[in-house]
Amino acid sequence: MFEARLVQGNLLKKVVDAVKDLVTDANFDCSSSGFTLQAMDNSHVSLVSLSLRSDGFEHFRCDRNMSMGMSLGNLAKILKCAGNDDIVTMKAADDGDTVTFMFESPKEDRVSDFELKLMDIDSEHLGIPDTDYAATVTLPAAEYQRICRDLSSIGDTVVISATKDGVKFSSSGDVGTANITVRQNTTADKKEEQVSIDLKEPVALTFALRYLNSFAKATPLASHVSLSMARDLPVMVDYQISDMGHLRFYLAPKIED
């Protein structure tokens, strides 16, 4: 039996809305340590890695490790029926072929349940090595979203260059060229405006903006996002989900041949 009760139910809605355009069907893996998902987009250029720890749920029971294949589009439709403040409970029998979502209003005066058919999805899991990143930039998630949106009107690739005085996002196309530089400001009076750069050595990498834009759909999940980069390696775009875990994206670089 798998049963998980999430008081901040809208978190699940935000997670699914953040990934449903990148990944259509995916396996959610349940174990005693938590609820995770790892999936690549169809082009295998980007990867989503969700991890929600069991101690972040109000109640979490997983008698046997199980993998639940779901259509993220259908899951999003079901979660749209949940109230923003509803408590969400997921339930699945060990050998069942459905998963039930129960939504309870805060005053418990409205309870609804939706049953979703599970799918058989053969997903190849990738081993993501621990990487000693040359640079990790942490900036307001809304700022990252704006940069990606602004630059995608200029070109379809962005060069992200991290140096000690800042991180520069550059793009060029038929319209022209654009450079957006964000400087470190750990002294910003408001914490949510802080930008920090942990630099071991300068690094510059080129990425397709359409994926970076898609990752920014996770903005509602966290105040900040971290970009971790190392030469000729995928970038890790990391949204920390407070007290629960993270929603991470990896994107392979474009390399000069």
Binding site: V45, L126, P129, P234, A252
Partner: peptide
């Protein structure tokens, strides 16, 4: 020429 790589070029399939 910029070549778009795939993640399997960097991460091993388990």
């Amino acid at each position: 020429l910029l070549v778009q790589y795939g993640l399997p070029d960097f991460f091993t399939a388990l």
